[in-house]
Design a protein around this nucleic acid. Structure first.
Lengths: 344, 344
DNA sequence: TTTGATAATACAATCGATTGCACAAAAATA
DNA sequence: TATTTTTGTGCAATCGATTGTATTATCAAA
């Protein structure tokens, strides 16, 4: 009596002297089942707190209405807002969401994907890890017939749907803003260039310098600088330079933060001596001193769009769904770290 | 040829003119299979990129080696560190982790749990939502024979294992520190009292006041104040008081943040006019101005301990696993927001 | 009373794996 | 050569559901 048990459709059938098929149909309100039988089945099912086994059901049906989501980190504000957007749409459409984090590791990403492929998910949303150098594991989804939609950090060569923001435009807006704030020598903290979002931000930076006829200087570009630590290190190197830049465009908020803190520790004023802008609009940007100018990426909206696109593809019966790419417009949020003109 | 297909063990069997059982055994290195057969099966499996169907496998085996984790929010630093700790242990022990967030909603929590119960998880780790007022949905795990371990926000009346921190001790350390910094009237931003962690923090506050013979004043306790907004609101109310407190012990970092910002906006200096301490040691505490004194909860360690405890219970064959409660010691991190003596 | 239609339920195959048991062929022993 | 043992495979049941196709029972019409 004490042994815990999971009740099955067979248990209910046995108890009522009938068969599993009748019970199954009764629970589905199949009209071929008598009112009386339906009632007693439902009552017993309720009493036993019966719920169909997910594995058996999805095995039989060929789908478990589950969407997998792969993000580099769940605790990055941007990704957590994307996840919220995905959750909204998925819940509304009666899908479950299975969240995975790669911790920016390509190996972990590959392992997780292989585990998801064996029937755990029916569709996939992914943003690739920073250390990912090839996408063969993402190709597996196509081979298995599981729709895949990239968001934000997309693997561009792959012919699948993508939801991204216009990082190039965000970078252009940011650098223009710095120039208009009076900056003439603008350094750049760049992200890993094999990831589309970072490459586009760097392109926006370079093109905007050109647009204003400003000289591009290799030594002013710091590669692979997206963490607080590397941002701080870059700032130290900057401070050791002969000709100090008067502006920094960072591809991420964390590296911008590192730079600001390092500047403060070395008696350099932001924005008076150096104006700084970040990217991602992490919440800390509004509470640090000086508050950080950044680019908002509309995470929730991206999540909603990506989930909608994926579900549309999953539910379409079209043999070959034609991949679509949705580009969202980012928004420059101007705060103190870059405002040099107004008060000076 | 173009139709995407998922290969099964039957496909491999047919191709090699053998049966599914042989293929299954070959893939498992069963000694009853000849070297030759094993080799050709493995080769073909490799070529087709075959992986056993997770649903079929876990249905047959009765377990999918999956641990479910329910957290209120994945983007709270504390919870994300717990998740990392859980992931570490789970990965090492060859378990998968299924992350769910309740968004602090009891209904969402209940829905998610019901969906997890039907064979999606073999063990569960949970931290209850703020709005949860009864635990009947958590009781279901017991009825299904699925081990459950609470971490941090535990439902104390339930007789299951728990991993918590000594919130009482953390509060005591925090309030003592304020008193020693010279505070004589200490206000308190309290969390929802039906959640053990917040109740314990409030108890620690009250007892420490008593310990120092300080008067407890109902009007100095602000209930249900754990967000930045409510923290700010509480500070406004404080500033409107006749006798201003000279210290605030907040049950959370976000409300402490709201209070600090509100104080700054109103020309009140922290810590000179009012010393403030928070709880959770969110990363922003070290980058805001003034930096925030807080209590660290050892999230990763908690995650590791909870996962280990759960896995131990899952793998034990003991009929009735005797629940254990692990209590971790929190650590007071002293920063600027509470340091009144040293520099003044 | 016989036939035909209809309603309600049972039987059996299926989804993709695992595994105990039976069985054949080959090898070892008598 | 006859018998036993070993070795390698196939058959069939099982996990927990769903669903097409029997198969009854019931009742109305002829």
């Amino acid at each position: 009596m004490n042994k815990k048990k999971k009740y099955t459709i067979q248990d209910i059938a046995k108890e009522l002297n009938t068969t599993a098929s009748t019970v199954s149909r009764a629970l589905q309100d199949n009209p071929r089942i008598s009112e009386k039988m339906r009632k007693s089945v439902k009552e017993l099912a309720d009493r036993l707190d019966y719920h169909p086994d997910f594995r058996a059901l999805s095995l039989k049906k060929g789908s478990g209405r589950t969407i997998g989501v792969m993000v580099p980190h769940i605790d990055r504000y941007f990704f957590s807002t994307v996840l919220r957007g995905i959750d909204e749409v998925a819940t509304e459409m009666k899908y479950s969401v299975l969240i995975c984090q790669s911790f920016e590791s390509a190996e972990k990403e590959e392992l997780l994907i292989k585990s998801l492929l064996s029937g755990k998910v029916d569709g996939m949303l992914a943003s690739v890890a920073a250390s990912t150098k090839h996408a063969s594991h993402f190709e597996l989804f196509g081979k298995r017939g599981i729709p895949l939609v990239f968001f934000d950090r997309a693997w561009m060569p792959m012919n699948v749907s993508k939801v991204v923001i216009d990082d190039y435009a965000g970078a252009v807006a940011s650098v223009r803003h710095l120039v208009e704030a009076g900056c003439r020598t603008i350094a750049h903290l760049a992200g890993p260039q094999h990831i589309n979002v970072y490459k586009n931000r760097t392109s926006g930076y370079l093109d905007t310098l050109k647009e204003y006829g400003l000289q591009m200087d290799e030594s002013m570009i710091f590669q692979n600088t997206i963490t607080r630590e590397t941002g701080c290190k870059a700032m130290s190197e900057i401070l050791a330079m002969d000709n100090l830049p008067d502006g920094i465009f960072s591809s991420g908020d964390y590296s911008a933060l590192g730079a600001i803190i390092c500047a403060r520790e070395n008696g350099i004023r932001v924005p008076q001596d150096i104006a700084i802008t970040g990217f991602a609009n992490e919440p800390f940007g509004s509470i640090i001193h000086p508050s950080l100018t950044s680019v908002d990426q509309h995470g929730a909206e991206m999540g909603r769009q990506a989930a909608s696109l994926l579900i549309e593809e999953m539910e379409s019966n079209i043999e070959y769904f034609i991949p679509r790419t949705i580009v969202l417009k980012p928004k420059l949020i101007i705060r103190d770290s870059s405002q040099r003109k107004p008060n000076h």
